[in-house]
Amino acid sequence: MRKKRRSTNINAYSIFSVVLILIFWQAVSFWKLVPDFMLPSPIQVGQAFVSDFHLLMFHAKVTLLEAVLGLTSGLLLGVLAAIIMDHFKRVREALYPVLVLTQTIPTVAIAPLLTIWFGFGVMPKVVLIIITIFFPVSVAMLNGFSSVDQDEVRLLQSMGANQLQIFWYIKVPASLGDFFSAMRIAVTYAVIGAVISEWLGGFEGLGVYMTRVRKSYDFDKMFAVILLISIISLLLVGLVNVMERISMPWKED
């Protein structure tokens, strides 16, 4: 009865175009159209990735920890804010413009300030990630909560349901789709946020390592870091997709 969901993420065509780009890139390097030190070839990047693997993993662990901490606190705060705004109209009217305002603050401008306020440790990174993902999460959840079918709400009321039951049986499942869409955006923001924050102050993490190799013109190593950041982001998005599929079985077809 159930159809398999059509995957738009990975298919033969997309793999083909990636391979094509890599071949083109390798050719450019091979015929020295661009000098090595400016643009290392994909093979050189791969070699750097392998030789630096342990170092990369060490820094990745730090970045990942920051991203996960920021992500979970940002998600929790965003969902909580959405619940409160959904329940109290006045709070929504008071908070919504502030939320929009947080989205207009340039991340790069505020990151050094956070370092001054919270030091060089994990804290400023987590705060930066929270600031970046709070808006998309809370707005998406608010949208999900307010888009529930009012007739469904009335039906449950007629069955004598209380506010908590209406929230649990209707609002939560109805907004799960919005939650996962927001989470997909949030995970990529979280990784990038952590890296940017590390650029601007820190002792370890992929951002710190990236600054270091850039300053010594080791561009093959720098591309290896970029590759790793992309892989981490993709894996996290994949994880969100799996979680979505498990928790929303009714969306199968």
């Binding site: 039906l155 007629s158 069955m159 004598g160 209707i170 499942p173 799960l176 009714w250």
Partner: peptide, 18 residues
């Protein structure tokens, strides 16, 4: 006093997530 009579509308209102 809701909750004393059963009520059904034109839309079946089966919750899609259950």
């Amino acid at each position: 006093k809701p909750g004393h009579v059963s009520y059904m509308l034109q839309k079946d209102l089966l919750l899609p997530y259950k």
